[in-house]
C-alpha cells in the first residue's frame, strides 16, 4: 500500500513580529488620530500576503505614510524606543516617484524583515515612507544616536542595498533635532 504523507506547510518565521501603520493626513484631526494600525505579521509569507494586497506607495495620496515598526514600538518620536534615536533619510525628487519610490520602499521593507544589518539589527526600530507633493521621503529609524558603530553600519548597508552610487551622500538625523527644528536647520549627525 502506498502511503501518502502530506507535508505540513510551514511558513518561514521572521526574527521579529512587525506592525504596519498607515497615516492619512486629515488636518481637522490631531496627528495621532490619523494614524492607524493596519496589521501585524511574523512570517515571510504573511509579509507578502500583506504587501501584495495593499496599495503601492507611489499610488497613495499626498500626505500619506506607511510605517513598519517592530511590534511594541509606535511610529513616532515620543515612543521610548525612538526618543533617543534618529533616522537614515532618503529624500527623493518628484521624478523619482515613478522610477524608484516603490523599489526603494520594498528594499527598505526587505532589509527590515530580513534583518539585513546583522547583529546591529537590534538597533533598528522600523522604517517610514512619507508621500509628499514636494518630494517623498523614506527612512530607517534606529534607537540610539550615540551608538555610532551601529548607526554607521546600518547606513552603509542600507545605501548599498538601495544601490545608491558612492557619490550620493545620505544623512542620519537625530529625532530630537527633527522635532525641534525644521528644514535646513536639521544637521546630519552622520553621513555615508
Amino acid at each position: 500500500k502506498e502511503h501518502l504523507t502530506i507535508q505540513p506547510y510551514v511558513k518561514h518565521p521572521l526574527q521579529n513580529r512587525w506592525t504596519l501603520w498607515f497615516f492619512k493626513n486629515d488636518k481637522s484631526k490631531p496627528w495621532q488620530a490619523n494614524l492607524r494600525l493596519v496589521t501585524k505579521f511574523d512570517t515571510v509569507e504573511d509579509f507578502w500576503a500583506l504587501y501584495n494586497h495593499i496599495q503601492l506607495a507611489s499610488r497613495l495620496m499626498s500626505g500619506c505614510d506607511y510605517s513598519l515598526f517592530k511590534d511594541g514600538i509606535e511610529p513616532m518620536w515620543e515612543d521610548n524606543r525612538n526618543k533617543c534615536g534618529g533616522r537614515w533619510l532618503i529624500t527623493l525628487s518628484k521624478q523619482q516617484r515613478m522610477l524608484e519610490l516603490d523599489q526603494f520602499w520594498l528594499e527598505t521593507l526587505l532589509c527590515l524583515i530580513g534583518e539585513a544589518f546583522d547583529d546591529y539589527s537590534n538597533e533598528v526600530c522600523g522604517g517610514v515612507i512619507n508621500v509628499r507633493a514636494k518630494g517623498d521621503k523614506i527612512a530607517i529609524w534606529t534607537r540610539d544616536t550615540e551608538n555610532q558603530e551601529a548607526v554607521l553600519h546600518i547606513g552603509k548597508t542600507y545605501k548599498e542595498r538601495l544601490g545608491l552610487p558612492v557619490k550620493i551622500v545620505i544623512g542620519y538625523q537625530a529625532h530630537a533635532d527633527t522635532a525641534t527644528k525644521s528644514g535646513l536647520g536639521i544637521k546630519n549627525k552622520f553621513v555615508v
Binding site: 506547510y9 518561514h12 518565521p13 521572521l14 526574527q15 515571510v44 509569507e45 507578502w48 501584495n52 528594499e107 526587505l110 524583515i113 530580513g114 534583518e115 539585513a116 546583522d118 547583529d119 539589527s121 542595498r161
Partner: peptide, 18 residues
C-alpha cells in the same frame, strides 16, 4: 542567540509561493 536572517533573493523567491 542566533538571528533569523533572510537575504533579498530568498525573500523575493517567496513572493509568489503558495
Amino acid at each position: 542567540g542566533t538571528r533569523i536572517i533572510y537575504d533579498r533573493k530568498f525573500l523575493m523567491e517567496c513572493r509568489h509561493s503558495p
